[in-house]
Every structure is written in structure tokens, then in C-alpha cells.
């Protein structure tokens, strides 16, 4: 098991009377890309502010790279790169100068600064705008400058708050690619309320709603759990009567979707899928497709958040 980089235990955060985060616990290990999901106002940004020492926890402990945010804030800040919800940019500065400043306050040594800036420009696709004023850049480019600022000192842990909010689809894909690329050799936690976002970049998700964790786990497991392990298949010549299909070995809870398409669960057991496929193919129906039902994260999300609301 790889070393835990972010350890959050029973974190609570009150703003006056309002409890923004109500005791959440999770761990992110080295090399993981974790998606931190939740509707607006769920407590994502607050949790991230605590992780970056911007605001202290009301109770509970938060350790970043084995340093407590309350006891060793400077060590924590040394280990992280942070892109806040609004990229922290100085409009009057040239991109390169801005990154140079970011590198300086992040304690990149003078000798390595030039190389660090070049690497960040390259990585975030900013080479052609390096001499432009930040204030004159488009929203997509500004977001990239924000990202470049967060990675300039090669932090072990990257904390990104809604990195693609407000970008057009092409820009979203570009930013995602950059994040995946960066995530190959470091720990990333990114928050979002846009689901495909997380599905495309993260291996594991934590879903929070109203300050509490409502679902957590590896992406596939979460999708599978909430998809209920359904399968669907398509027949070229469907029988008039479903009864013949229902009687086949391995299949359970058969449901005709029309047009030769069916959905079914598999009976428990290792060989259920094999026998079902064999039986379907052996029949006169012309099996052309047999695949697991894909649940999108969106469905999982809606399901858990709605459950929460009903409860």
C-alpha cells in the first residue's frame, strides 16, 4: 500500500452557526487522482481551504504529507500546489513574470527557476502567450496560468478546486489532459460538480453532500455497485415470446427493452456469464451484442444525492 498523502479524519468546519463540513474522513494515497464530488455548497471548497491552511478546521485532523495543517502549516504549504476556484492571477503581470513570482514564493531555487518556468509553460500549453499580460488572456488561458502556478514547484500534492469550471468543451478536454499528465507522478485531488469531468480523470471518487460523505470508492466499483451488475444484449431475430429466453441458464430478471434489445441480471456464480452467452449464441436468435450495462457517474451521483435528500 502506498503512503497516505492526504489524511482527513473527522473534519468539521463551522462558519458561525452554519456547519459547512460535518465530520468527513478519507485518505488519498501517493500517486492517486481523487475526484471530490458534490453539488454546489456541499463543502468541497471548505474542505480544500482547510487542506491548504487557508482556514483552520473547527475539529478533527487534517494531515498533508504527514504534516498537520494546524501544527506545521509551512511544511504543508511547501508540499502542495493549489488552484483555487478563482485562479489567483495578477492581471497587470506578464505570464512569465507571474510564474517567476509564483516560483519564488514557492521557494524554487534561483538556479532552477528558469527551467521550472519553461517546464510549466510547456506543460500547460502557454509557450505562445508567455510574454502576454495575464489580464488580456482568454478564460481558458487564464485557467492554464492558474494551473501552471500550481505545478511550478513540482509539488507532491496538487489540490485543484473546480479546475474546468466555465471553460468550453475543447478547453475542458485540454485541461483534463494536462491534469492526467501531471497526475502520473503525483497525488491529485480535484473537486467538481461536473461528473464526466471526474469520470474522465479520476481513479477514485468521494462524493459529499451537505457536508457529509455519501459515497466513496474506486470509480469502477462505484459504477458497478450502483449499476447493480446488469447486462444488456441484442438479438437480430428476437423470439415472439420472452419465455424462451427467460428459461436460459445464467440469466435472471429478464427485461425486454424493445427492438431486440434486452436487459438482464446474471445469476450468482462464476460461470453464469459464460453459460448465458453460450446459450444465447446457440439459439436461433442471432446474438450480436452482450455487454455490461454502463452506469455513468451522473446516475450514481443523482442516486446517492437523492437518497440523501429523501432520508
Amino acid at each position: 500500500m502506498r503512503a497516505p498523502m492526504i489524511e482527513i479524519e473527522n473534519l468539521r468546519k463551522l462558519y458561525g452557526q452554519h456547519e459547512a463540513v460535518k465530520g468527513i474522513t478519507f485518505t488519498v494515497r501517493a500517486g492517486e487522482i481523487l475526484g471530490f464530488l458534490g453539488p454546489n455548497g456541499a463543502g468541497k471548497s471548505t474542505t480544500m481551504k482547510v487542506m491548504t491552511c487557508l482556514t483552520p478546521p473547527t475539529s478533527g485532523s487534517v494531515r498533508i504529507a504527514s504534516h498537520d495543517v494546524l501544527l506545521e502549516p509551512l511544511e504543508v504549504r511547501r508540499a502542495i500546489g493549489f488552484l483555487p476556484e478563482t485562479p489567483p492571477l495578477y492581471p497587470e503581470m506578464v505570464v512569465e513574470d507571474y510564474l517567476s513570482f509564483a516560483a519564488e514564493i514557492r521557494r524554487v531555487r534561483r538556479a532552477q527557476r528558469r527551467a521550472a518556468i519553461d517546464a510549466a509553460l510547456e506543460r500547460c500549453g502557454l509557450v505562445e502567450v508567455r510574454r502576454r499580460l495575464v489580464g488580456n488572456l482568454s478564460k481558458g488561458y487564464r485557467q492554464r496560468v492558474g494551473l501552471a502556478q500550481a505545478v511550478i514547484h513540482e509539488p507532491r500534492i496538487l489540490i485543484l478546486d473546480e479546475p474546468t469550471v466555465g471553460l468550453d468543451p475543447t478547453q475542458v478536454i485540454e485541461i483534463r489532459t494536462i491534469i492526467r499528465d501531471i497526475g502520473q507522478d503525483r497525488t491529485v485531488i480535484l473537486s467538481s460538480h461536473i461528473l464526466p469531468e471526474v469520470q474522465a480523470t479520476c481513479q477514485r471518487v468521494v462524493i459529499i453532500n451537505r457536508g457529509q460523505i455519501v459515497a466513496e470508492g474506486p470509480m469502477e466499483e462505484l459504477l458497478h455497485r450502483h449499476g447493480g451488475g446488469s447486462w444488456h444484449f441484442t438479438l437480430r431475430r428476437p423470439p415472439a415470446d420472452d419465455g424462451a429466453l427467460a428459461a436460459l441458464p445464467g440469466l435472471d430478471r429478464l427485461f425486454a427493452l424493445g427492438g431486440g434489445r434486452y436487459r438482464a441480471a446474471l445469476v450468482p456464480g462464476d460461470d453464469a456469464r459464460e453459460s448465458a452467452v453460450r446459450a444465447l449464441a446457440a439459439g436461433p436468435w442471432g446474438l450480436v451484442e452482450f455487454a455490461p450495462e454502463t452506469t455513468t457517474l451522473e446516475e450514481v451521483f443523482r442516486e446517492v444525492v437523492l437518497q440523501e435528500a429523501r432520508a
Binding site: 487557508l54 511547501r78 493549489f82 489567483p88 514557492r106
Partner: peptide
């Protein structure tokens, strides 16, 4: 106002 405080306050300086 322009949110750059977050950059400064999350950098390793007092």
C-alpha cells in the same frame, strides 16, 4: 478582491 491572497497565503511563507 482579486483572489490573489489565496496564492500568497498558501505559499510557504509566514
Amino acid at each position: 478582491r482579486q483572489h490573489t491572497a489565496e496564492l500568497l497565503l498558501t505559499a510557504p511563507m509566514t
